[in-house]
Amino acid sequence: MKLQRKNRLRASAVGALAVSGALLLTACGSDNNSGGTGTGNSAAAAKNVKCEGAKGKLLAAGSSAQKNAMDLWVKNYMAACSGVEINYKSSSSGEGITSFTQGTVGFAGSDSALKPNEVEESKKVCKTGQGINLPMVGGPIAIGYNLPGVDNLVLDAPAIAKIFNNQIKKWNDPAIVKLNPGAKLPDSAIQSVHRSGDSGTTQNFGKYLGKAAAADWKYEAEKKWPAPGGQGATGSSGVAAQVKQVEGSIGYFELSYATSQSIPTVKINTGAAAPVAATSENASKAIAAAKIKGTGKDLALSLDYATKAEGAYPMVLVTYEIVCDSGNNPDSLANVKSFLGYAASDDGQKILSQHGYAPIPTEINSKVREIIAGLK
């Protein structure tokens, strides 16, 4: 009887391990670009999340750039705080800000800081304060491409600008050939793909080109795509899907989308000793040099898109969670503080680098935590 009981226990343990492994493989193999959460991360999060006072539903919306990070955070957080349901609608930064200023969400995600007119608009919702920017997610904007036989494509800012401005139209253009000696570049058309809706990723992409390729990119850095030609797609997931499917295509999106779909990414010739790859580590080197340009509790950052520092990937973005510094909806305030507190915690930030994002530098993140704790 003792032997039978021991065998049953052993079989039960093996079964549980198999189920756990299956769940992990399902998460990692998911084609919704969630990137997987990892059972270990959920367990770790459960020990550190402060759930006190949080209950019911929390609605949020905005940036699709942080969707994969948000998926990870939501799963881990809800595993720790079983009485709370987080619903983040991934759309665009513009839609997220609109939802926030209309008072329909507890917080919004945006890849660009609030403009002065948006701050003014937020005061209607933040009865005793205004909307502020809390940097929560960093990472590289990757340039993904579909060019069979070319595994290490190198471009510089002027070439990228001309491709997306419909001035370089063939893959064997002399400018691309010069940057890729020895590569077998085909005499075929380039199909560039951009975001069709208002997008903070587009705006950050434009900021990079405006700084690093000023002579070739004359457009203002706005959320709406400004250049002629190319094909539009919905969200970063739509751009990545087009690049994955269409041979000869090229598009911009967050690294996590390239990683999850095995899309090769461009190395950028910044003028440093060697071209720089789009990695979390290389993006962190650029983000670490960011300066806070916001005032008061606003932590909007100024990034150096034209950096030539060794190993620093210059095409980066920071996604902000937008909240009221005071005057938050009392029905959602506890949930907002609890959830964002987890996202800014060591555990919340640690999982970012494992999934194609870059954690916010410690010096800045400590201020984020302090402000979250003081929201009212």
Rank of each mutant, 00 (worst) to 15 (best):
Tyr320Lys: 07
Gln242Met: 15
Pro116Trp: 11
Asp111Glu: 12
Phe253Lys: 04
Gly36Cys: 09
Phe100Ala: 04
Gly206Trp: 02
Val316Gly: 02
Lys291His: 09
Ser30His: 09
Leu301Glu: 09
Ser196His: 00
Asp111Val: 02
Phe205Asn: 07
Tyr219His: 12
Asp71Ile: 02
Ala45Asn: 04
Gln4Leu: 15
Asn165Asp: 14
Ile160Cys: 05
Leu317Thr: 03
Arg8Glu: 15
Gly144Ile: 01
Leu23Asn: 09
Ala241Val: 01
Lys6Tyr: 13
Leu134Lys: 06
Asp346Phe: 07
Ser82Val: 02
Gln203Ile: 04
Phe100Gln: 07
Gly38Arg: 01
Leu114Met: 15
Ser90Gly: 06
Tyr305Pro: 05
Leu303Tyr: 09
Leu9Lys: 12
Lys123Asp: 11
Leu25Ile: 13
Val119Trp: 08
Ser236Thr: 03
Gln231Asn: 12
Ser280Asn: 11
Ser91Trp: 01
Asn152Trp: 10
Leu153Phe: 07
Ser63Gly: 06
Thr295Gly: 15
Ala286Val: 12
Ala221Asn: 08
Lys291Asn: 12
Val246Ser: 08
Gly197Ala: 13
Gln261Thr: 08
Thr101Phe: 00
Gln354Ser: 11
Gly21Ala: 15
Pro275Arg: 10
Val14His: 05
Val246Met: 07
Ser12Cys: 14
Tyr320Phe: 06
Glu222Ser: 14
Asn7Asp: 13
Tyr257Asp: 03
Tyr320Gln: 11
Ala18Cys: 15
Cys51Pro: 00
Ala27Asn: 09
Ile372Gly: 05
Ala65Thr: 14
Pro314Asn: 01
Ser90Cys: 12
Ala54Asp: 09
Pro116Asn: 09
Cys51Gln: 08
Lys162His: 00
Tyr208Asn: 05
Leu147Asn: 11
Ile268Glu: 01
Pro148Met: 06
Ser196Asn: 05
Leu303Cys: 07
Ala221Val: 07
Ala306Asp: 14
Lys376Leu: 07
Pro226Tyr: 07
Arg5Met: 13
Lys291Ile: 02
Leu9Gln: 14
Leu9His: 10
Ala189Thr: 15
Lys184Trp: 04
Asn269Met: 13
Ser260Cys: 05
Leu23Met: 09
Gly341Pro: 05
Ile160Gln: 08
Ala233Cys: 04
Val318Lys: 02
Ala213Asn: 06
Leu147Val: 11
Ile268Gly: 02
Ser332Gly: 10
Gly62Arg: 00
Asp198Gln: 13
Ile143Tyr: 06
Ala159Leu: 06
Gly109Val: 00
Phe205Arg: 03
Leu25Trp: 08
Glu247Gly: 04
Tyr219Trp: 11
Ser237Met: 08
Ile168Met: 03
Ala212His: 13
Ser64Asp: 14
Gly356Ile: 08
Asp151Ala: 15
Ser262Gln: 14
Asn76Met: 02
Lys267Gly: 03
Ala221His: 06
Ser260Val: 04
Lys89Leu: 12
Ile292Asp: 11
Cys28Tyr: 14
Ala45Leu: 03
Asp347Trp: 00
Ile364Tyr: 01
Gly271Phe: 10
Ser345Asp: 09
Pro181Ile: 05
His194Ser: 05
Val19Ala: 15
Ile97Trp: 02
Ala286Gly: 04
Val193Gln: 10
Glu281Tyr: 06
Val318Thr: 05
Gly35Arg: 03
Ile371Lys: 07
Gln102Ala: 13
Glu121Val: 07
Met70Val: 08
Glu370Asn: 13
Pro116Val: 09
His355Asn: 08
